[in-house]
Nucleic acid binder design. Sequence first.
DNA 1: GTCTATACTTGGATAGAC
DNA 2: GTCTATCCAAGTATAGAC
Lengths: 206, 206
Amino acid sequence: MERGGTRSAPTRRRLVEAAVETLKEDGFVGASARAIAERAGSNQGLIFYHFGSVTNLLLAALDEVSAERLHDYGEAVGRVGSPGELVEVATDIFLTDLDAGHMTVLAEMIAGASSVPGLGAEVAKRIHPWREFARSAIENSIGGTPLGAVVPAGDLAHAVVALYLGLEMLSHLDGDRQPALRLFGLAGQLAGLLEMTGASSTSTTD
Amino acid sequence: MERGGTRSAPTRRRLVEAAVETLKEDGFVGASARAIAERAGSNQGLIFYHFGSVTNLLLAALDEVSAERLHDYGEAVGRVGSPGELVEVATDIFLTDLDAGHMTVLAEMIAGASSVPGLGAEVAKRIHPWREFARSAIENSIGGTPLGAVVPAGDLAHAVVALYLGLEMLSHLDGDRQPALRLFGLAGQLAGLLEMTGASSTSTTD
DNA sequence: GTCTATACTTGGATAGAC
DNA sequence: GTCTATCCAAGTATAGAC
């Protein structure tokens, strides 16, 4: 239901969506005010009216993707206990993100941050929740196990985010997602092995 | 010792070096013909004379870094046997690359490839040797062990390159190399564990 | 809030003098 | 092989009409 009077932000939203799409398809370099505005079906000047600068719009795009992804991740991981299940869900998430290009937005913003003063800190701020989410999911999965006692969840989370990012970039580069797929298969096997050797944390009453 | 007559390619080399530095400091977006030429102390037009386009110069820069790195890697890994030693050497290499910004060149080129048609394939071509090198080093290290029988070296190499890339991007983003450092420490511990449980491949005559 | 028009800057690329 | 000058396209950003 729409209000006839103000209807405050349809253009703003369209610009953000267009910015996301442009980052996915044309990368950071291709994400100019003109390119984004054209994709949004509106004009270039509105970007500066609504966001002040192209950079701010791109950050809004990153916020959008970040929020959406973290929401979906939370739903997916909510009902996960064992490491095996976690890997299974992570594989699913990874493939979804890869095909939809969600991570491309992140990767392009990180790389682009090298070129725009001050952007790095803003991007870092927005990546922190991803790492924190991974840490929490990992802790819930291996927190009570011997492995969890040896390997700090925070460090592992950092590695997972980095690997996630690197795999996306390589997959995107030559359009081949097979190597990444095989890796997740491998991770699944290792997780299965882990569940049999170490004590699992799922519903084990001692 | 310099020849007085032709002295064929000093400018060309200076441009390549300047391109490398510019990619490191200002990223793909900042690596314009004018910015590179200024850093090289020569003028913009020479880039097109020598390389035809900025993109070609950037690829030459990537070639340069790639060749130099693979050479150094080869030297370092040449005398490595056990997984523990491999991790040790890898840590050293990683820190060197991180501080020198070698991987930044790679990361920026991969990210920038999204924006320039045809660049992706060229960059992919130049990354292939890195993966192949990693595969070979891994195979030499765990090839004869039980782990090597379960985990394909090629898949692991892909993961290593991806992780390497991802860690560089995250470290570069917020200027904090501590998380990456802790990870390598962790990897060292795991490798040590591996050497004790599984059979090591180093000089074991049965 | 949206559109058109425009100022200003930077960048890729070429021509021509030296 | 190098430098200057220049063209043209694209980018950011603002002003002002609607």
